[in-house]
């Protein structure tokens, strides 16, 4: 009965479909390659890097392998992570519509609102898998190539390895939350078309535009409303005590996006004629 009302069957099935696709695994593999390539590049040229040179944290990677994940996250956030997210989010409804499977799901029957929720949660699981893959691959390759020890935080405090691993998980979680707004936007765009590539491109462009706007000081009034605004603030997790205000602001903003674009997706999808 419980499984019925929560439609766990459909959720499980959604995840099975997602993780049956080779594309999903290819994207997770590519995400894992980011810290790996980064670590190898740093390893091969370690002595030529002065402190403060290159992206933030990069100089620390050689001193402590556990920094690999954080550095890779910084590199992946502007483009690569949003790219994979937009593929998954843009595919939600448009992908099913393009294949024609959407009509068979709906006459199975699946309530349309339920399908939207399941699709959204599915993309959220992918985001979680992606961010954790990145951090885990970072920790592993870092441990292989570089010395590992207690981690010196940005605030100068030192934490032990288990706590450092906990902070890594928190960063992955923070980044997943950061993606919630974009995923909701993707879900909405995906209800507008039957061509998944169109929806994916739309979501990716939105993330690019948002990041550009966030870099224009003239538009500073707008910045805190952009869904990409808090993306890089995960660094606050690397302070002692943890700076949680950006965490809260980010969560609030992302939930706002989820509410707005979730409603738009609901309004659009529940009244849409499925003609594909």
């Amino acid at each position: 009965m419980f499984a019925k009302s929560l439609s766990l069957s459909l959720m499980a099935s959604e995840l099975r479909v997602m993780f049956t696709r080779r594309r999903t695994w290819a994207m997770l593999f590519a995400i894992a390659m980011i810290p790996i390539l980064l670590a190898i590049a740093v390893y091969l040229s370690s002595d030529r890097l002065a402190p403060g040179e290159g992206p933030p944290f990069l100089d620390r990677v050689t001193q402590n392998g556990l920094f690999t994940g954080f550095t890779a996250m910084l590199l992946a956030l502007p483009l690569f992570l949003p790219l994979t997210i937009s593929v998954v989010a843009g595919d939600t409804i448009a992908g099913e519509a393009g294949l024609g499977t959407l009509r068979y799901l709906l006459i199975a029957p699946v309530n349309r609102a339920r399908l939207l929720v399941v699709k959204y949660l599915g993309t959220l699981v992918f985001a979680l898998a992606g961010t954790f893959t990145l951090m885990a691959a970072g920790a592993m390759i870092g441990a292989i190539l570089f010395p590992v020890g207690p981690v010196t935080l940005l605030s100068g405090d030192v934490i032990q390895i288990p706590e450092a691993l906990g902070r890594m998980a928190l960063v992955a979680l923070y980044t997943t939350i950061s993606m919630m707004g974009m995923l909701a936007l993707g879900l909405f765009i995906s209800t507008l078309t039957t061509i998944p590539v169109g929806a994916m491109t739309g979501v990716l462009i939105a993330s690019g535009v948002s990041q550009i706007l966030d870099n224009l000081p003239q538009l500073s009034w707008l910045h805190e409303w952009l869904f990409t605004h808090y993306w890089l603030d995960f660094a606050d997790i690397l302070r002692q005590p943890m700076e949680l205000s950006s965490f809260g602001d980010n969560l609030l903003l992302q939930l706002g996006y989820v509410a707005v674009f979730g409603s738009l997706a609901y309004g659009r999808f529940t009244t849409k004629d499925i003609l594909s």
Partner: peptide, 20 residues
């Protein structure tokens, strides 16, 4: 209309799972 990357059987299981 089916998911091309899944077997015929798994496609049917998918659609049946959708029906609560």
């Amino acid at each position: 209309a089916f998911y091309p990357y899944m077997s015929g059987r798994n496609n049917l299981i998918r659609i049946d799972s959708a029906d609560r």
